[in-house]
Design a protein around this nucleic acid. Structure first.
Lengths: 226, 226
DNA sequence: CCCGCAATGTCATGAAAATGTCATGAAAAC
DNA sequence: GTTTTCATGACATTTTCATGACATTGCGGG
């Protein structure tokens, strides 16, 4: 069903995971050290990586950081030993999608795997880049250029632009932008979106008062032209 | 606006949720145990179920499993107490659409409710496009063209046309249009519909005084020809 | 067939809603 | 502490929209 890479140096755990995942009809790749794991991520492009934290050659941390820095967005589920609380925070910080502490219950781990895969499938694929006119925006490097000149853009602006680009041509409502870019925890007013759109226009449009790319659809939302 | 079932045994929480949801002009049904909740889902067919995990008689977990097994696809938002980590995973596994851990922030919960309802509505079977004669209307991009020339249409016009297109060939009454396009909060006179139809004709018909596509059915309503 | 009445077409107008714009201060990041 | 990011509110401007007056059409009954 899905291709899953397990990077784990304890052969007993590795075997147990492999059997269970295969039993759920997944294709399983394995590695017992960080460097091999890194290579397999690049070559085989798995749908999910289950990653032990303590690994020979290249730690789970370092591996995670490295692939994320390269813009690989493959979901990662971390395996941490009990008491590595601090590590857990650092792990999620580095871009892991979930974590399980050892010793773990196999059904729970499988449930988390299913949840991650489901989430990954339902998430629309966000673009890594956007180009139009003389503008180039790189959403992984968080860099933007206009006529080759570096452009200063802030985090929310990248987020908004990225969602608009993902649905290029279609109208995105302010509520959808708030859901996706802000999340549900803090939910500012829809007017906040307008302000960010205004500053995006000021930076990206030739004539911000006559926008050609960031279009208002009155009563509905905004869209980015194709 | 929407019909929401809340299944929660703590009367304080139940009351708070009910008040807030009603304040957002939803119809709220309540149950304080799992079995009653189950019955209401079957009988009343709510648009959304907010489901506590720990319930008398039938746990939220079990309830969720049962209705999903019966093929009920009503969105479910789970309420879990902090520390019910395993349950949370199992809940999502069972087909809950979202979850919130208690104690939860009310604005956040309301935001999630809005998002779920929005998602549900968007998957309703409304056409994404309409073509006839030399007219093309795209309801996702909010764009309209006639003989390849861009046509300016406003939100209500898109809404009316979309409903007429969804029931192409059938007559739609003014009341139905008001219900679906305007909603129940602000309910203008039926004459307002006539005006919007007139402006649609002016934009889409070859000869607006002799409409070929947006047809009046005297004494009943309007229809869009197949 | 023609009259009367109700339903609909047409248009102008002002109100209300949505959006653009900017300044300000709070909160977060550094 | 300093700087940056961000949310909010006030005001101006634009757009949408509901209403009502009047014209026109369609329909049924004498």
């Amino acid at each position: 069903m899905s291709r899953i890479l397990v990077v784990e140096d304890d052969p007993a755990i590795l075997r147990g995971l492999t059997d269970n995942l295969q039993y759920e009809s997944h294709e399983v790749l394995t590695a017992t050290d960080g460097e091999t794991g890194y290579g397999l991520i690049r070559q085989k492009n798995p749908d999910l990586v289950i990653l032990d934290l303590m690994l020979p050659k290249l730690s789970g941390y370092e591996l995670c950081r490295r692939v994320r820095a390269e813009g690989v967005s493959t979901p990662i589920l971390m395996l941490t030993a009990k008491g590595e609380e601090v590590d857990r925070v650092r792990g999620l910080d580095l871009g892991a999608d979930d974590y399980v502490t050892k010793p773990f219950s196999v059904p729970e781990l499988l449930a988390r795997v299913r949840a991650i895969l489901r989430r990954a499938r339902s998430t629309e694929t966000l673009p890594a880049q956007l180009c139009f006119d003389d503008v180039v925006v790189d959403f992984q490097r968080y860099e933007a250029r206009k006529s080759d000149k570096p452009l200063k853009m802030v985090r929310k602006e990248f987020g908004i632009l990225r969602l608009l680009a993902a649905r290029a041509g279609q109208v995105v409502t302010r509520e959808e932008l708030l859901d996706q870019v802000w999340g549900y925890e803090n939910y500012p007013s829809t007017r906040t979106v307008d302000n960010h759109i205004a500053s995006l226009r000021a930076k990206l449009e030739q004539d911000p008062s006559q926008p050609c790319y960031l279009i208002t659809v009155h009563g509905v939302g905004y869209k980015l032209v194709d």
